[in-house]
Write a protein that binds this DNA or RNA. Structure first.
Lengths: 226, 226
DNA sequence: ATGTGTGAATCGCTTCACAGCT
DNA sequence: AGCTGTGAAGCGATTCACACAT
């Protein structure tokens, strides 16, 4: 019988490998650099040149790309525009993501009109808070919604990503409600590890921890790696 | 009276090993958890129990500590208070750090009165901006200084750490001035890799990159590792 | 001639497993 | 008996080095 399973897929030469978080993070950095290069009308770059800009090795860059396909031309290098498009596809930046911010405090409002988000497909649709003094008021371009309505509002606006910027002690409960509302990913600024039952992707952001790491490496400079 | 314990000459059993960034970051997490445990009057914890709270293995925790000394008691576990003190010492949180914030925008002002900083030794002494409309005005508890005075002000206040929250295109130039003023570490929120000639420790913070990583893992959940 | 793509070698972090202390 | 501390094993990520494409 004809099992068309073992396809010889040529174009994006599929690999069956796990991609590490570090590779994804680097792709995101390359993407940033490529945008700058394109702005400066650079249309070709070698892994060696890009490596210098990023502070990594050229082998690292080629290996990172190799998980996803063959984007370069031997003897020539990479076309910046093409490469950017490939990376955007990998990271999901061609897509439109609906985002909600939970917590209308300092960090929440700092993020609302961060232009780079919208430029790369992240559209902030909702802001929530539990403070009656804030609910109903405008915060930048959005009206602050009551956090009690988070499930229905998120469903109505089809929110897929939530950015949580609320106190640590409230974080777990809110995360569970967000989860029920069908949110697929959370970027958590609350200094608290979230425990969710299922497939929600969580990333933790913690400035205090970064400062502490900095502090350690200042005191132990010889240990400083990257 | 001299209640000298069984201390043997060099208590923190010096190792000659490199400590990885991941270990330092985890220590910072353990430190946070320990503070909570102490608040709840837990005075002993085993590596197994702590591991469960942190979402890592118990071997990982014991190994992390082992780079710095023997903090536990076999058959018993760790005293939370002692362990906290040890970690604080390792991370330099017993110390007093003078910190400057560069950029009185959204992020800068979000950070100024972040209470946790001061609680762990990070004292924000100065805020800079280049906007005449902001210079001289109060921002939270501080007067915004002219960025042109950054060298002299940082020297006068003995600033060791700078938090940069300014646009990408200004970042490199400011970093160089900060460096000349003797700052030892930079936490950089500008989406731009800083290239400094010497021993300054730099950590990069980038929310857009975190969102992009989140986006990738939402689309490829099976790949999601941590 | 140049620079990619990639198996193979290497490096470094994590986990195992158990000796040793309380 | 219980749990730490740690060499050794295991494993994933990075770098090397070169065949191959242009």
């Amino acid at each position: 019988m004809k099992t068309k399973k073992k396809v010889k897929k040529s174009p994006p030469k599929k690999k069956q490998m796990r991609v590490s978080g570090s590779t994804v993070k680097r792709l995101s950095k390359y993407y940033r650099t490529l945008n700058e290069l394109i702005k400066e009308d650079t249309d070709t770059i070698s892994s060696e040149e890009l490596a210098k800009l990023e502070g990594v090795t050229s082998a690292q860059i080629r290996k990172d790309f190799s998980f996803f396909g063959n984007f370069g031309r031997r003897g020539l290098g990479y076309n910046t525009q093409e490469l950017k498009t490939h990376i955007a596809g990998i990271l999901g930046l061609n897509r439109h993501w609906n985002v909600a911010i939970v917590g209308a405090g300092n960090i929440g409002s700092a993020l609302i009109d961060y232009a780079e988000f919208k430029a790369h497909g992240f559209h902030i649709k909702l802001v929530f808070d539990n403070d009656p003094a804030k609910i109903g008021k405008m915060l930048k371009s959005l009206i602050v919604k009551n956090i009690d309505t988070i499930e229905s509002e998120c469903q109505r606006e089809n929110i897929e990503i939530a950015i949580m910027a609320i106190p640590a002690q409230a974080a777990q409960a809110v995360a569970e409600r967000i989860n029920k509302a069908g949110v697929k990913g959370i970027l958590n600024f609350a200094p608290k590890r979230l425990q969710l039952p299922n497939h929600v992707v969580i990333r933790q952001e913690n400035t205090a921890m970064e400062l502490e790491t900095l502090s350690y490496f200042i005191m132990n400079q010889k240990d400083y790696l990257k």
